[in-house]
Amino acid sequence: MRKPPGKVDILPKEIGSLATGLPPARPGTLFVMGANGGMRVSPDAGFDVVFGRCEPDVHVCVGPADPRVSRRHGYITREHSRWVLHNVGKLAIRFPGPRLVLGGHRAELPVAYTPLFIVAPAQEHLLEVRIAAGSALGPADLHEVETYDPEDTAARAAQADKWRLDPTERLVLVCLAQRYLRQEPWPQPLTWAQVADELGRLRPGERWSDKRAARVVTAVRMRLSTEVDGLLEEQIPPPIGNSLNHNLITALLIGTRLRASDLAVLDG
């Protein structure tokens, strides 16, 4: 599809995951990334972002090799000062956790980073969405937004620092998330007792306990809670269960901050 002129830009695939941060942008700006790149849309552009399997017919391609994904599976549009997801395909779209948007239904998107998944029988296909946060700007301020340098390295570095894992954090998180990294079906985080037991055997001189492991993970989760929705207890309806750790692990996997190769740290 043609890119309309004005306040809409194409994002190259090389920009990477939206989970790791954004260039400075006007509050309310929509970013969408799929298999081969994505789009940036200003909140006043009057433009709908269409996504689906058939790349020539959509703005953002997702699930290009899966015929169960609809050619045009859905779109994101601006409604009453909110970005809203519309599913027009047959397969459900999953928010982080169990929430599903079925075909023919809609859902408002939070002002945050939101990984969405088109749920196909064999696999789930990722569509990354992020809406820029910030205080509202008046008309007199809008010209200042356009002067921001998208290559502002200081802003990017500050954003990336939140996602950087030190060796201890990586060790604990890899242990917690190892079922995900081993690509087991329907993975769940290990319990704190299991994490402490494995770390105790791996590092016998470091006095690991379930409380110490939990403190390490909680610190990472709180640090990223301003970047990712679903990492705070008040954002999760009870019973919370494993939701907080599951959401954290999912965000780290999507942002490529945890990789299967990290399992090597569990080999001593």
Results as ranks from 00 to 15, higher is better:
H59W: 04
V145D: 11
S243K: 11
A154Q: 12
E128G: 02
R68S: 15
R201D: 11
A158F: 09
S225M: 06
E227Q: 15
L231F: 04
I118R: 04
R2N: 14
L266E: 06
V49G: 03
R72T: 13
T191N: 09
R215V: 08
R71W: 01
S243T: 14
P150C: 11
V111D: 12
A140F: 12
V265P: 03
A35M: 04
R164Q: 15
V60R: 00
W163G: 03
R106E: 11
V228W: 03
G34R: 04
R68T: 15
F51E: 08
A65I: 05
D44C: 02
P237G: 07
Q235S: 07
G52L: 04
N36Y: 09
P64H: 08
R78E: 10
I254Q: 07
F51A: 08
A160M: 13
R182T: 08
E55Q: 15
A219S: 14
C175V: 05
R182K: 15
P115Q: 08
S243P: 00
S17H: 06
A160C: 06
L137W: 12
T20W: 03
L176W: 00
V60S: 00
E146L: 15
V49H: 02
K13V: 12
G205A: 10
V174I: 10
C175N: 10
P110C: 07
R223K: 15
L85D: 03
T226S: 15
V50A: 08
L173K: 07
G134F: 09
P12W: 03
T256P: 00
E227V: 00
D9W: 14
I76K: 02
D66H: 03
H246W: 05
D262Q: 07
R78W: 06
A35R: 11
A133F: 04
A251P: 03
K162A: 14
Q188C: 10
V265L: 08
L11K: 07
N87T: 07
I10H: 11
P5E: 15
L224I: 06
C54L: 14
P23G: 01
I249N: 01
T77L: 09
R203C: 13
F117A: 09
N247Y: 05
E108V: 14
E233M: 10
I118E: 01
A177C: 09
A158G: 11
D166S: 08
